[in-house]
């Protein structure tokens, strides 16, 4: 394809990224570095600030059960409540990723079963890329950037909950060093979604053709946007290998928690995605 077409594709994907993803990298980095006119995020670093943070966001994402309102109950139930809210936000994010995928030219013309397969295998990888800009070595933004939760607090939760976010921090810190911007990210997310090697695909050729065009667009975008960053295109693509391992470990952990946590129920959409995944 002509480079003008590749630039138009980059602009289109960037626009739909802005349309469907509420917290961009630019905004997240501004919040994290304090360079924004908005209020600084509320910091959750212990049980007391967690309760205050929950009240601040009106408990929408972290519902308290009436019979567990004692302080002792809060201590015991914090992990379950936190991951209930994590699941609700994940389900919303999957819906956003789906809309973004549908906006990739040619995606909705693929076999519907293949669209399902691409999303099933792609969404968690995409979500890990999307949370990277929200993270730094000390913690992560949550709740659309209103709250900053410290890494130490997440590590202080009981097992296995404390093991959930740490691998994402390790990945994100390295991924953020590539310094991709939101337009680079939009193209990379489309490349991930259009992976022709997902298990069970019925018609691989049209998917690979679409991915090839987006890959060309990403390569050109990185050359223009990062002229001094050598081999950036190759470095970005290498992240896809790390992502697959990260998702495999994540799904194993969730499935283990489903067995061991009696009070834990998995959101139906996450169940659909994780069933028979790897």
């Amino acid at each position: 394809p002509e480079s003008a077409d590749l630039r138009a594709l980059a602009r289109h994907l960037y626009e739909s990224y802005l349309k469907y993803f509420p917290l961009t990298k630019a905004k997240a980095r501004a919040i994290l570095s304090g360079k924004t006119s908005d209020n600084a995020p509320f910091v959750i670093h212990d049980m007391k600030s967690l309760v205050e943070g929950e009240q601040m966001i009106n408990c929408r994402y972290m519902p308290l059960h009436e019979h567990r309102r004692s302080d002792l109950g809060i201590m015991h139930e914090v992990e379950l409540r936190f991951f209930h809210s994590y699941q609700s936000r994940s389900a919303e994010a999957i819906s956003e990723v789906t809309e973004f995928a549908k906006s990739i030219p040619g995606f909705i013309n693929l076999d519907l079963n293949d669209q399902v397969t691409l999303l099933k295998y792609g969404v968690i990888e995409v979500m890990i890329i999307m949370i990277s800009p929200l993270m730094n070595k000390d913690g992560t933004l949550i709740s659309y950037g209103q709250i900053f939760m410290t890494r130490e607090f997440l590590k202080s939760l009981r097992k296995p909950f404390c093991e959930m976010m740490e691998p994402k921090f390790e990945f994100s810190i390295k991924f953020n060093m590539l310094e991709l911007d939101d337009c680079d990210m939009a193209l990379f997310l489309a490349v991930i979604i259009l992976s022709g090697d997902r298990p069970g695909l019925l018609d691989v050729k049209p998917i690979e053709d679409l991915q090839e065009t987006v890959l060309h667009s990403l390569e050109l975008q990185l050359k223009i946007n990062h002229p001094d960053s050598l081999q950036l295109f190759a470095k970005v693509l290498q992240k896809m290998t790390d992502l697959r391992q990260l998702v495999t470990d994540h799904v194993q952990l969730i499935q283990m928690m489903k067995e061991t946590e009696a009070d834990w129920s998995l959101h139906p959409l996450l169940q659909e995605i994780m069933r028979d995944l790897y």
């Binding site: 389900a91 819906s95 789906t98 549908k102 099933k120 959409l269």
Partner: peptide, 20 residues
């Protein structure tokens, strides 16, 4: 298809993200 009911619904919904 039954196994991925919600994903199918999300894909076939023509407007904005559906309420989950």
């Amino acid at each position: 298809k039954e196994k991925h009911k919600i994903l199918h619904r999300l894909l076939q919904n023509s407007s904005s993200p559906v309420d989950l």
